[in-house]
Design a protein around this nucleic acid. Structure first.
Length: 471
RNA sequence: GGCCCGUUCGUCUAUCGGUUAGGACGCCAGGUUUUCAACCUGGAAAGACGAGUUCGAUUCUCGUACGGGCUGCCA
């Protein structure tokens, strides 16, 4: 059995689409799980639609998602001479022909066919014309498609699809300006690149029949097809800017880890029994074409968030910090000081287990990312019904001597609470206010251990003074 | 219009003729708690519709409805 080769072939138009990312992921998983090769080809045949910025966006998206491809990206436009060569080869063997119809004339013929309710696809009158009749006009090269019988597509996802050949028109291979069209380029490139498995959106399902025409005209082996259903928005309509975030970069900016995106996207339309949360290694091992669903699936942010939460909780601190830094960077936040970085690394132990995304993680860690004087959020202020100064007066001096670990601090706090005859429930908001100025924090003991003795005491004193002044 | 594809809880899905149709997210209720959360327990919730094949259909076939795709000198 020959080695598996897959590819992702996006066209460079604007940002990288999340659907493209999923298709890339499927191809990547399939190849990587089978010791195969995964290639990237930029489909820039139509130069007017292409832009370097869009290509960069694709590269960035792939990099963020960790979808590494083999070799250099292949530019389709650079391969145009080869496409032209094949078109002329087909012309020579009589499997393609010159068509001298103008676009205007084609339009008329097409409209006429629709008007007459012709069941057949459009045919050019030049199909069988002898060279002696050729005018001195620009021409396109069309493939000579069979007019009867059927073309079968063996699709790993959709099954065996049969398309009547009278539905297939003599598609254009080379434009009148001599440039190749997409359909030719795809078939030639996939063949030349040795692609064995084409996993792509099912909007290409009908195209597969056309591409098969090219393959068979050239006596090439037809690759394995797997046409996967498209992703829809939460409203069930095709994913668009109106109903969802469409570009990969937006998800990065929302602060979802790449591993979570891979997990969620893989699970969207593919399944491995009841497994919901899995690692890349498992996904590579498990991924197959048989368990890809046939119907389009809706993008669900709630589920993504849940998967994201599990991934954040399961990422080790150093890697998480690395991703967090990249996240802050992409959302144009100022970078963190070494001091903050150090604190963050320690705080992650107990802050990473309960958040859904990086902005939440930042918020949860805000106590360590703030410097004195601590600004107190309004909602926290409101929760402090009375301000028992005596508690702090009693507590602060004792903090000087207590052994600085979590259990000792708990003991101390409990005894102080007893002395002032308050429940810890009442005291905690005050400490939270003093230490973090926010209600979104980890436990006060965890904050104390990370902040350290000195900083904790400074914050408590600062708070005490502030309230003394206000009274 | 023609052709092609799809349809299981709100959502993602399991099921490869025989199940009390399972899981996850979300939702609801209760519990725990030191805030936001998190966590624990329980609950409601599905085979689009109509025929046929079969001892038996979610599963196979056909039709209908709905949704999607293709039908470009776009990709």
């Amino acid at each position: 059995m020959s080695k598996v080769v897959t590819r992702i072939a996006p066209s460079p138009t604007g940002d990288m689409h999340i659907g493209t990312a999923r298709t890339a992921l499927f191809n990547w998983l399939y190849a990587r799980g089978r010791n195969g090769r995964f290639l990237l080809r930029i489909e820039d045949t139509d130069k007017s639609r292409s832009a370097q910025a869009a290509t960069d966006a694709i590269l960035m998206g792939m990099a963020w998602l960790g979808l590494d491809f083999d070799g250099d990206p292949i530019s389709q436009s650079a391969r145009a001479p080869r496409h032209v060569e094949i078109a002329y080869k087909l012309l020579e063997t009589g499997q393609a022909y010159k068509c001298f119809l103008s676009e205007y004339e084609i339009n008329d013929l097409r409209n006429l066919a629709i008007k007459n309710k012709s069941p057949n696809a459009f045919r050019s009158p030049w199909r069988e014309a002898p060279p002696s009749k050729f005018p001195n006009k620009p021409f396109v090269i069309r493939i000579k498609a069979p007019q009867s019988g059927a073309t079968i597509i063996n699709d790993e996802v959709q099954g065996n699809i049969s398309i009547q050949n009278n539905q297939l028109d003599d598609m254009i291979l080379l434009r009148s300006n001599g440039t190749p069209v997409y359909m030719l380029a795809v078939a030639v490139d996939d063949h030349d690149m040795g692609v064995t498995h084409i996993i792509r959106g099912d909007d290409h399902l009908n195209n597969a029949a056309r591409q098969n025409l090219i393959y068979s005209a050239l006596n090439w082996n037809i690759p394995v097809y797997a046409h996967i259903p498209l992703i829809h928005g939460e409203d069930g309509k095709k994913l668009s800017k109106r109903n969802s975030a469409t570009s990969v970069i937006e998800y990065k900016k929302m602060g979802y880890p790449a591993s979570a995106m891979r997990n969620y996207l893989a699970r969207l339309g593919w399944s491995h029994g009841d497994d919901e949360f899995f690692t890349d290694e498992q996904a590579k091992k498990w991924f197959d074409l048989q368990h890809i669903g046939k119907s389009p699936s809706r993008f669900d942010f709630k589920k993504l968030s849940n998967i994201s939460k599990m991934h954040i909780a399961n990422t080790d601190n150093a890697a998480l910090l690395h991703e967090l830094i990249e996240y802050l960077n992409v959302v144009d936040q100022p970078s963190l000081s070494q001091n903050h970085l150090n604190g963050l690394l320690r705080a992650l132990d107990f802050t990473k287990s309960s958040v859904k995304s990086f902005p939440e993680l930042i918020e949860k860690n805000s106590f360590i990312l703030k410097d004195r004087p601590i600004n107190i959020d309004l909602d926290v202020r409101e929760k402090i019904e009375e301000f028992p100064l005596k508690t702090l007066k009693l507590l602060t001096p004792q903090l000087q001597n207590v052994k600085w670990d979590r259990s000792k601090l708990e003991e101390l706090l409990n005894s102080v609470c007893e002395q002032v005859e308050l429940k810890f429930k009442t005291v905690a908001p005050i400490l939270r206010a003093a230490l973090a100025g926010s209600s979104k924090t980890p436990s006060v003991f965890d904050m104390m251990t990370v902040l350290g003795r000195e900083e904790t005491i400074e914050r408590l004193i600062e708070f005490e003074v502030k309230y003394n002044n206000e009274i």
